[in-house]
Design a protein around this nucleic acid. Structure first.
Lengths: 235, 235
DNA sequence: CCAAAAGTGTTAATTCTACACCCATGT
DNA sequence: ACATGGGTGTAGAATTAACACTTTTGG
């Protein structure tokens, strides 16, 4: 007995929704689709699952091909499997979202894909059901980040509290009280204050913080409370 | 242009982890696998995705075939795609979990599958990676139910507060204070008190409640707070 | 010296937890 | 009448939200 006869076999795509943060706004890394149909149109990064690789590895491979980055925070999102989602042939798409430090992304010369960062709010129309995928990714990111400390993945190793607050402001499109925010964040005991300051953003300068790596892995599983009344962010 | 040539096509399985509640314990509906390999061994309910059906429809179909039930609460879980998870041939499994009212499940005569309910805690070894699937489903159920009112799906239309509390006790394997529990649950304004009592459980009898359906759909998206310190339930 | 952003504390309101007694009824 | 499980209230603790002034320094 060698195969399950009589059953249909389908193509599996892996699609990655890649988020970044420019200090002010959430961004999305999009590519030009490299083959027909819809060649040249904007699309999320993706590729086909190879016969011998796990979906996680495939997602990591695809991300690395485009950005050169490894060890990136990724999370499985959802399977999109509407039979007519791809007009050429049925494809099941397994989606992932990735959070990357936008500064680590050194312009890839990918002639083939001509990737570009877009403001999330100003992203172009995407092919197929990729708009839905982005919506789902954003929703899940908000949900996840309201409960767990994952947004740090979007910042450089050293960052300031004002930067962090700007990030939360961008993700939730909401204002945070500076005093309450810093108190909550620091009370999680995840951050280590550095002695240097960032002088870019202001004359006075803001202290850098770094993640306490030992704590971080444990507390990834922990509920955080940086975002008040998460109710708002669930719809 | 008709197909994406050169790419491998794979089998897609849909597997459902079915939960029930017997008034005291969480249960799992398992079947005997009906074909080789591992024929006769215990397994989660599943089937292959057909060429023209969406994964959601496939999951509903498979659930209906086994239980006769429709309109059941289901949620997509995770894609399992380890290349060697099935020894015969590579299969990508899209998993769902389902919450059913165990009373609505009238013994199916499925000769083929010989399904049985198991106490979650006393479930047998399952084939392939189905043990992992069950773990993931339980984890997600706990996570979800700590934040959203989904556990009602495991109860009959009319239920009492003691029943509901027993359900939470079973799901989280933790004790709840009766007074605090009922106050929290009722403050969500999801339940409508009935005039009749359930006299099964006690001499005094406990009032029945029903979901306020109008509220329910809205509030499914709402954070609930029935479970204290959800931290414990995330690992 | 002044504009611009960083940093910090207090109070009132709300929510949460812990805890114990009375009630209704079937036997 | 009593055993069994159902139902209810309160007080202290903890958490959260709202709010404004001082500090630093580059220009």
């Amino acid at each position: 007995m060698n195969r399950y006869s009589k059953q249909a076999r389908l193509l599996i795509a892996i699609d990655c929704i890649i988020f970044g943060f420019d200090g002010e706004n959430l961004k999305l890394l999009l590519i030009h689709r490299a083959f027909e149909p819809e060649m040249g149109k904007w699309s999320v990064v993706g590729g086909f699952l190879q016969p011998d690789e796990s979906p996680e590895n495939a997602a990591a491979r695809i991300l690395k091909q485009l950005t050169g980055l490894e060890g990136v925070y990724m999370e499985q999102l959802e399977a999109f499997g509407n039979p007519s989602r791809d007009p050429i042939e049925r494809v099941i798409s397994l989606t992932y979202f990735a959070l990357i430090d936008i500064n680590k992304y050194t312009e890839q010369l990918s002639e083939e894909y001509r990737p570009e960062w877009f403001l999330l709010k100003e992203r172009p129309e995407l092919i197929f059901d990729h708009n839905e995928m982005v919506e789902a990714a954003l929703k899940k990111l908000r949900y996840k980040a309201a409960l767990h400390p994952v947004l740090f993945e979007l910042l450089p190793e050293k960052f300031t509290l004002p930067q962090l607050q700007a990030l939360y402001t961008a993700v939730y499109d909401a204002q945070f009280d500076k005093r309450n925010f810093s108190r909550k964040v620091l009370s999680a005991e995840l951050l280590v204050k550095q002695t240097e300051k960032d002088k870019e953003g202001s004359k006075k300068g803001a202290f850098y913080y770094m993640l306490d790596k030992t704590q971080y892995k444990d507390k990834l599983q922990t509920f955080v409370n940086f975002v008040p009344t998460p109710d708002n962010f669930l719809l």
